[in-house]
């Protein structure tokens, strides 16, 4: 699905002294199958933007088109387009309401009007996709641990087989192991399905692991939009937007300042290691 955002603006609580512009004149395009990261400090408009893309808000100005269809329209075609987008809010486990994990994950597919066998197959697939044992399907979601409920909530969205998956800080509140595992499952899911992934995150290291393109928002405006290796390694830009650069970039920059001939736009620790070894070899 092709997502086009055209001159989008949004204001919260308009017409009162508390009115606040959350987005100003945002234009961008996301092609099918792209892996995009959305970064920005708290209050920069990230969550507002993803809600617009999911068709949950009505733009104050501009529009969002999903394959050419206005995202928030009340027509059957727009609804069908919206159902091809999966959205997980921050702390998606808050939305859990069913008595069993199976019913919780089956809720979305049921709303799609699928038949029983297909629903059961999708639940099984989604449960495995997030790395949970199939036996968990009969348990109550309210008896699971925090990390497990988070994964159940994600599975409930994956089971709808979205063409576009939007995740608003999917790893917030998880321990480092849980984060790594979740990111690995998401990467695996994206490889298998070839769907579009749009992930909101504060963590440049996390984004570096999974996305190829990064959009930076600052105060409701587009601060940057480009290849992950260009944007995330741009120290000036990232710090102006209130963000960190990945740890490997910090290390490479420090080495460069002390006279090493290393490139600094390598985002992953393994890449940084190779670069350092190469630089040492050349120096020797």
């Amino acid at each position: 699905m092709l997502i086009r955002v055209e001159n989008l603006s949004h204001t919260y609580i308009p017409g009162t002294p508390l009115a606040r512009a959350a987005l100003r004149d945002i234009s961008l395009e996301i092609a099918p199958g792209e892996r995009v990261g959305l970064a920005g400090r708290t209050g920069s408009g990230k969550s507002t933007l993803v809600q617009h893309i999911a068709g949950l808000l009505i733009p104050a100005a501009g529009r969002v088109l999903l394959d050419g269809i206005p995202a928030h329209a009340r027509t059957a075609r727009a609804r069908a387009a919206r159902l091809r987008i999966g959205l997980a809010f921050q702390h998606p486990e808050d939305q859990i309401f069913e008595q069993t994990v199976f019913r919780e994950i089956a809720f979305g597919p049921r709303n799609l009007g699928l038949d029983k066998a297909e629903i059961a197959a999708r639940v099984e697939w989604a449960i495995n996709m997030v790395g949970l044992p199939s036996a968990m399907a009969s348990r109550s979601p309210f008896t699971l641990s925090g990390g497990e409920t988070r994964r159940v909530a994600l599975a409930s969205i994956l089971a709808m087989r979205p063409q576009v998956l939007i995740l608003d800080e999917p790893t917030a509140g998880l321990d480092p192991g849980g984060r790594r595992e979740l990111i690995a499952h998401l990467r695996d899911w994206q490889c298998k399905t070839g769907s579009t992934l749009l992930m909101v995150s504060h963590s440049p290291d996390e984004l570096a692991c999974i996305v190829e393109r990064v959009i930076v928002l600052d105060d409701g405006q587009l601060a940057a939009d480009g290849r992950a290796s260009d944007v995330l390694s741009n120290v000036a830009l990232m710090s102006a937007a209130g963000l960190d650069v990945p740890q490997s970039v910090r290390l490479l920059c420090a080495l460069r300042r002390s006279g090493w001939a290393v490139r600094t736009n390598l985002l992953l620790p393994e890449e940084a290691l190779d670069e350092i070894i190469r630089a040492r070899r050349e120096a020797a």
Binding site: Q51, A54, L87, F89, D94, Q95, N111, S156, I157
Partner: peptide, 18 residues
């Protein structure tokens, strides 16, 4: 805020609130 957020989350899962 909570009602708004959960409402949106469930709408994104295909519930027709309206």
């Amino acid at each position: 805020d909570e009602i708004d957020k959960i409402g949106k989350a469930q709408r994104a899962r295909g519930v027709q609130m309206d």
